[in-house]
C-alpha cells in the first residue's frame, strides 16, 4: 500500500515543488516588472513636468496669448479637423471593404494602405514634395491644387500619414460587428447600403469616435511630413509642432514651451477619450 502510494506522493511532491518554484520565480519576476513599469511611468512624468515647469505660469500664459501661438493654435485646429474629417469619410468605406469583402490581392493592398504607418513621416513628406515636381504634380498645381508651402499642404500631409491609422481602427470596429445583423436587415428589405447605414454604422459609433479622436490627436502633432511639404514659414504654415521647431532653433524657449504644453494637454485629453470609447481593444 505504502509502496504504491509512494510514486503518487513523489509526483505530488514534484508538482508542489514546481508550483512553489513558480511562485518564488513569480514574485521576483513580478517585482522586477512592476519596478520597470514604475520607473518608466516616473520617467515619462518627469519628462512632461520638465516641459511644463521650465517657465513660470505667467510667462506660459503670456506666450500662449501671443499672436504667433494663437495663429499656430488656430491653424493646427483647422488643418487637423479637416484632415481628420477627410480621413474618416474616406476611411469608413475603405475599412468596411477590407473588413467585409474578399478583394483580389487583399493582403498586398492591405500592406500598401498600412505602409505610411510604418514609414517615417519625413519620408512621406519628401515623397509628397517630389510628387509635386513631377509633370502630374505640376499639372495639379496649374489647375489650382496648390499644396507646396500652403496650409492645404499641411492638410494633405496630415491626411496621408494618419489615414492608415484611421482605417486600422475602423476596420477592427467593423470586424467586431457580426455580419448577421446586416443579413437580417437585408431580409427585412434593406439594400446593402441601407443595411450598412442603418445597422452597422450606428453600431460602430463608439469605434468611429475613438478613431476620430486618435486621428485628430496625431494630426495635431504631425511634424515631419508637414515640414517637408508645407515648409516652416512663420504665421503661414506654422502649426503647433512647427512653432516648437522654429522657436526652439531660434532660442525662444518660452514660445516653444507654450506650444509644447498645449500639445501635451491635447494628447492627455484625446488619449482619455480614446480609452473611454474604444474599450481598450480598438485595434
Amino acid at each position: 500500500m505504502k509502496e504504491r502510494q509512494c510514486g503518487k506522493n513523489l509526483a505530488m511532491h514534484h508538482i508542489q515543488m514546481e508550483s512553489r518554484w513558480a511562485k518564488l520565480k513569480g514574485s521576483k519576476f513580478e517585482a522586477l516588472t512592476v519596478f520597470l513599469t514604475l520607473l518608466l511611468a516616473a520617467f515619462v512624468l518627469a519628462v512632461l513636468v520638465c516641459v511644463v515647469a521650465h517657465t513660470t505660469p505667467e510667462a506660459l500664459l503670456e506666450s500662449i496669448a501671443s499672436s504667433e501661438i494663437q495663429f499656430a493654435i488656430k491653424l493646427s485646429l483647422l488643418t487637423s479637423i479637416i484632415s481628420t474629417a477627410l480621413a474618416i469619410i474616406i476611411g469608413i468605406p475603405i475599412a468596411y471593404s477590407l473588413a467585409r469583402y474578399n478583394i483580389p490581392l487583399k493582403s498586398l493592398i492591405n500592406t500598401l494602405v498600412d505602409l505610411p504607418l510604418a514609414l517615417p513621416p519625413l519620408v512621406a513628406g519628401v515623397g509628397l514634395l517630389l510628387f509635386f515636381t513631377t509633370p502630374l504634380g505640376e499639372a495639379l498645381e496649374e489647375v489650382g491644387f496648390r499644396f507646396v508651402f500652403t496650409p492645404w499642404g499641411i492638410v494633405l500631409a496630415q491626411f496621408l500619414v494618419n489615414v492608415p491609422f484611421t482605417i486600422r481602427v475602423l476596420r477592427s470596429t467593423f470586424e467586431s460587428i457580426n455580419p448577421r445583423y446586416e443579413y437580417v436587415a437585408q431580409t427585412l428589405g434593406c439594400s446593402p447600403m441601407q443595411a450598412f447605414l442603418r445597422v452597422s454604422l450606428p453600431m460602430s459609433k463608439r469605434g468611429i469616435l475613438a478613431g476620430s479622436v486618435i486621428t485628430w490627436s496625431s494630426a495635431m502633432g504631425e511634424f515631419g511630413a508637414v515640414l517637408m511639404l508645407a515648409g516652416a514659414t512663420r504665421l503661414r504654415t506654422e502649426t503647433l509642432p512647427i512653432s516648437i521647431y522654429l522657436n526652439m532653433l531660434c532660442g525662444d524657449l518660452d514660445m516653444a514651451i507654450a506650444a509644447s504644453s498645449i500639445l501635451i494637454f491635447i494628447s492627455f485629453l484625446s488619449l482619455f477619450i480614446f480609452e473611454k470609447y474604444s474599450g481598450g481593444h480598438a485595434y
Partner: peptide, 15 residues
C-alpha cells in the same frame, strides 16, 4: 524700398 511689396510674394521662408 520694396520689402513690403516683396513680402506679398513670399510663398515660404526656410531655416
Amino acid at each position: 524700398g520694396i520689402l513690403d511689396e516683396v513680402k506679398k510674394n513670399v510663398i515660404a521662408r526656410t531655416v
